[in-house]
């Protein structure tokens, strides 16, 4: 009974946290882009424009709900959910802290520690393809449909490279559990570097980073939703809260992707050279995880406003002819290092 209560508290905290961070990210995006482009961002609604997301939310709620007459209503309304929910669900398998000794027991800061966690995360990112392709198709609009097909083709292609680069991390760890991935990154490498997976598997990290950009449809891979090319891609026909769900869904995917990068390659919630135990360790792990994930969230925003976007054929060509061979190269290198006993 107490276990159930603790689980519900964890789920509530996680969902509440993610939804808040998603709203904060929209503020970060707008102020960050303004800083990069040498202008002010929103600065009227509250100090430094911090209440801008609240204003945006209110605006979205009060907008008129338009559903095109030719649209397939059920799938039109279902697709934003199909994009948003897998991103939230995938976070259930990511350890966001070590453990808190609460109520006389050690509460592990992960919602579900199944033995195949990483595989389920990959499966959930496959499920989010449905939201895109259904959104494009249900809108009964040529541009939406093309945007939807392009976007889902892009996601499927880059999923392969992502799976291959994750494969090497799982090989060196020996398990699909993300808690074990984190605990296998303890200690140091050659005495001075922290034993994070980014150092021996740097190529894999680069491939994973790029494919995370492609999976979340962020620049430089956001042609399917580019404003100038395809109106707005697969969410052209969406208005008010449905559009807000897509918009927030993109940020939710970003958060999950950043959390995954941190967990797989940067040691997760651990401090680099030894992590304390007990309550202090638990709270510190939460803070460390938050800092590391925020860095990568900022990195996503930074890259978006720095690089131009890829053309669609360049994008697909890169996915198949560059990143999959690179991921295989990474696999060869890491296998060689494993056999030689270096890692």
């Amino acid at each position: 009974m107490v276990e159930l209560l603790i689980l519900l508290v964890k789920v509530g905290v996680l969902i509440g946290g993610m939804l808040t961070i998603v709203a904060v990210m929209s503020w970060v995006e707008r102020r960050g882009s303004a800083m990069i482009q040498d202008r002010l961002g929103p600065n009227r609604v509250g100090p430094f424009g911090l209440f801008q997301p609240v204003a945006d939310g209110l605006k979205f709620i009060f907008k008129e709900e338009i559903i095109p007459s030719e649209a397939h209503k059920f799938y039109f309304l279902l697709s934003p959910l199909l994009v948003f929910v897998p991103a939230l669900t995938a976070f259930a398998f990511i350890p966001f802290g070590s453990s808190l000794p609460v109520l006389g027991r050690d509460v592990p800061l992960i919602i579900s520690d199944v033995s195949v966690g990483m595989l389920l995360i990959l499966g959930l990112s496959g499920l989010s393809v449905y939201g895109l392709v259904l959104a494009g198709w249900a809108s009964s609009n040529k541009y939406s449909f093309m945007g939807g097909i392009r976007s889902s083709a892009q996601m499927i292609s880059y999923e392969l490279a992502m799976t291959l680069s994750v494969l090497t991390v799982l090989m060196t760890t020996g398990s699909f559990r993300l808690t074990e991935v984190v605990s296998s990154q303890q200690g140091t490498l050659f005495g001075f570097l922290p034993n994070w997976n980014v150092f021996p598997q740097f190529i894999g990290f680069c491939v994973f980073l790029v494919t995370a950009f492609a999976e979340t449809n962020r620049l430089p891979f956001d042609l399917p939703e580019a404003e100038a090319e395809l109106v707005a891609g697969y969410f052209t026909e969406y208005s008010s809260m449905k559009f807000a769900l897509f918009y927030l869904g993109e940020y939710a995917h970003m958060i999950t992707a950043s959390a995954l990068i941190v967990t797989l390659y940067f040691g997760g919630w651990q401090l680099p050279y030894g992590h304390p135990e007990g309550m202090l360790g638990g709270i510190l792990s939460l803070a460390v995880f938050a800092v590391k994930t925020s860095f990568f969230l900022w990195f996503f925003v930074w890259v978006r406003w720095t690089l131009p976007r890829f053309r669609y054929d360049q994008l697909m060509k890169m996915g198949w002819t560059l990143f999959i061979p690179l991921a295989f190269l990474n696999f060869l290198v890491v296998s060689a290092l494993l056999i030689l006993g270096v890692i």
Partner: peptide
């Protein structure tokens, strides 16, 4: 097998 079912069947074949 459950995870593979989701990844392969739901994530690839039906797509």
């Amino acid at each position: 097998i459950a995870a593979i079912q989701i990844v392969v069947y739901a994530g690839a074949i039906i797509v």
